[in-house]
Write a protein that binds this DNA or RNA. Structure first.
Lengths: 341, 341
DNA sequence: AGAGTGAGTGAAACCGGTTTCAGAACGGTG
DNA sequence: CACCGTTCTGAAACCGGTTTCACTCACTCT
């Protein structure tokens, strides 16, 4: 940052005041066209770049938003959901001229420290938080009461927060209904009680069952943590109870479930029909390709950023309103509705 | 940021000057213990948090580093390498009190814009760049000549940059040698010419062959782009030439290769032995589990951050020195060295 | 007793922008 | 021609810290 050109220097070269340069920079009116022109030329010729730090200090906005993934390292590794979501948020932020700072807060004490340092920084215009899946709550409000915050995924521990989420209940409902439509009756599920999304999907599953007059059987419900391993284990738990079909609450867990089937000498969809959730790339690549509920991840990220921006602009206190995005069933081969090759 | 407590306010309450508060804050000497005590008490009682923005402006350091993943969205999605690396960098940054801003720069024009905005920000103490895999070079130097930059992965387009990389040549060498040791002679490779790492791995492959007196056969070399699909296609290209063994330059491509084998009615390692590269989680989960070259990703991230920090502290001009990290062969089942279950 | 020495402190300058405010220049009215 | 309302502009205050510099005040050392 040594010999950088400052607004002062530009002002001198263009023979105007700092104030005028600032006005040109920010596109304010009340600058004579020829002056504006001249300043712009100097800016171009010198390659002047305003120092954002100074700008921030003066204007009390940083244009930086924090994106906090509060989940175990395990999951971030294993489930493409997080990379996809991260990219979505990053893109949306970029589109709106915001800089995204990413934080992966681990379950351990480190996590708390990270969040504290985030807030202490006083550096962010706002935060996007993922509803955590491990019970360790992150509650920045308690520390910085008027920092704008938007959750992605319904936060399970409290109300009163802005959030954007996919319609997980509908997801579970669609998946399960589809299996019922295909004539299955003993329908199991591998869900998750690690976060609200998981719970909601199971809720949808139960709703579909009851609506179609099928009994809910505890033994046909397994819980995982979204990891491939937990899907594998979940399916092994279910197999003794001979389900005809299974709704698995994530693609990644479905991959694990498929492996369990394979090892048991069974095949989907012939022996057991499978529908999963998320529609991430592995769903297509799986063998057989997974029928799955598509979650609009990119859109989720976009909306979260937009919502956050709106809150920021409105100075923190916007009425809490949540956005639930529709989901859609993508039929592939694992459910048996289509002839596999 | 409305009614926040400022250093001025703290100074008044503690009945000292701003300068003294600042000294206490930054742990400078030459403050009487009792005064220090008093200031600290006021800080504690008021819950004062220094405004970093102001601090940055005054001290010309932001403690924010940019981490730029310049790769197609595709790859970031498909290859767990990037999430793993991101986490490594994020952790390392956090450990050293730095904030990491993540940028995913796409191949399209957007990418350039992003990078420009990064630099324009004048906000970062330094940048960590991933050596890009799509030819679209990112050359911040050209714009901000003394911004500290460290690459992860040898940048293939130019010299004179600090970088940290795994010993990819050695990786290819180890993998191929292992296959030779197992008695194979017709050894193919699915490499990549999308970046230096890919090239280096192929170099290692060739070195192993020539060192053991085996001829290099062009037809036994396929190139991919690290995606699962390209591994699949690569293997299909190779199959007509009947390789006994294949060194695949990434786990993700190896998964694709495995699928191609399966579809061709072949099994690894019985029909074709496979060794891959990276040792990411999917390597263990694959069927059969992959023998693969372990890349020290976490260490890579750490070193990159450390190196960057050193450059920053030394004020930009540190002698360029690169770090090549050793790799290690992890033997599992896909190579046939171990009895599979 | 007078001269150094170094610890402890505050006033003020500074970082590089934005924003307020007042004044100059200009055109249109009465 | 005096008066007023715009438009355009610059000086200066301000954002909230850090850092420099000068000064005071013990406390040694001749």
């Amino acid at each position: 940052m040594s010999g950088r050109i400052t607004i002062q220097r530009v002002a001198e070269l263009a023979d105007v005041s700092k104030a005028t340069v600032s006005r040109v920079l920010n596109g304010y009116p009340h600058v004579r066209p020829e002056v504006r022109e001249k300043v712009q030329r100097v800016i171009r010729e010198t390659g002047y770049q305003p120092n954002n730090i100074a700008r921030l200090l003066a204007s009390d906005r940083s244009s930086i938003i924090g994106f906090v993934i509060s989940s175990s390292a395990q999951m971030v590794f294993h489930d493409p959901y997080f990379p996809a979501l991260t990219e979505a948020v990053s893109d949306a932020a970029g589109d709106r001229g915001l800089i995204m700072a990413l934080f992966m807060s681990h379950a351990d004490g480190q996590g708390q420290k990270t969040v504290n340092s985030i807030l202490a920084a006083g550096l962010f215009d706002g935060l996007i938080l993922t509803a955590d899946a491990n019970g360790a709550s992150i509650f920045p409000q308690q520390l910085a009461p008027d920092l704008p915050v938007v959750f992605i995924g319904r936060p399970s521990h409290a109300d009163g927060f802005h959030y954007v989420d996919a319609d997980n209940v509908q997801g579970g409902y669609l998946a399960t209904s589809h299996l019922i439509d295909l004539g299955h009756r003993r329908i199991a599920t591998i869900g998750s009680n690690r976060n609200a999304s998981g719970e909601d999907r199971v809720t949808g599953y139960r709703r579909a069952l009851s609506q179609r007059g099928l009994a809910f059987d505890e033994r046909l419900v397994a819980f995982g943590d979204y990891s491939l391993e937990s899907g594998y284990a979940g399916m092994q738990t279910l197999l003794p109870y001979k389900p005809e079909a299974v709704f698995v609450a994530s693609d990644t867990m479905a991959l694990g479930a498929l492996r369990a089937l394979r090892e048991a000498g069974l095949r989907a969809p012939d022996d057991i029909a499978l529908v999963s959730h998320d529609d991430l790339p592995p769903a297509v690549q799986a063998d057989p390709p997974l029928t799955t509920v598509q979650q609009p991840i990119a859109r989720t990220g976009q909306l979260a950023v937009q919502k956050l921006e709106r809150i920021i602009v409105q100075g923190g206190k916007a009425p809490v309103e949540n956005t639930i995005l529709p989901v859609k069933l993508i039929v592939r081969e694992s459910c048996g509705a289509v002839e596999s090759l």
